[in-house]
Amino acid sequence: MGSGGLVVMDQEDCMVSIARYFLEFVQHESCGKCTFCRLGTKHMLESLNHITRGEGTMEDLNRLETLAEDVKFGSLCNLGRTAPNPVLTTLRYFRDEYLAHIEEGRCPAGVCGDLIRYHVDLKKCNNPCIGCISLCSIHRPRCAFASSMELCNACLERCPSDAIKVRRDGKKEIIQEKCTKCDECRKACNANFGAVVKISPPAELEYSIKQ
């Protein structure tokens, strides 16, 4: 990147989001003297924001490409001249990721918050069925079976926004309205069962569950 450093990334890094990150940095660093750098990178950043939020259109992509060329060839100093490079190279090598964001509302790497949903795969959520206990309200305090059960609450404990609900059968479910997509539950579950998954595009959640 601009500093001459090398950054190694894998399939869990969204290239659109990476381009956005670098452009945000350039916007922050721009002195504001020349038009392309001051305003061109601002609009590029706005287009990228649209795309990563799932509001992007092909127009945004065209605008991004036009401005990237403008800014690269016309800026006054090397900050502006190199600013569009992350956009231009990701567009060249990972164009499909941009298109996935725009056309399908899908973030292939599962990074862009607005384009993903967290979901607990009930088959993997490893709590035994304790349906009888949840049904039997009278004897629960004295039930030897119930007290011997060890429930996994890893995701529940890590969730900062109280977005995880325990179902009657003891398995977990994510309340989407409360979820901040911080990825903590997935990290916590990964070590044990890998039941928390990211689904993108989010609209297809219902479909996934049926499967």
Partner: peptide, 19 residues
């Protein structure tokens, strides 16, 4: 000042546009 960049021109054998 060279700030607005409207007066950019192309030079032969040079990729970068100049004010």
């Amino acid at each position: 000042l060279g700030a607005c960049r409207i007066c950019i021109v192309e030079l032969e054998k040079r990729e970068q546009l100049v004010a």
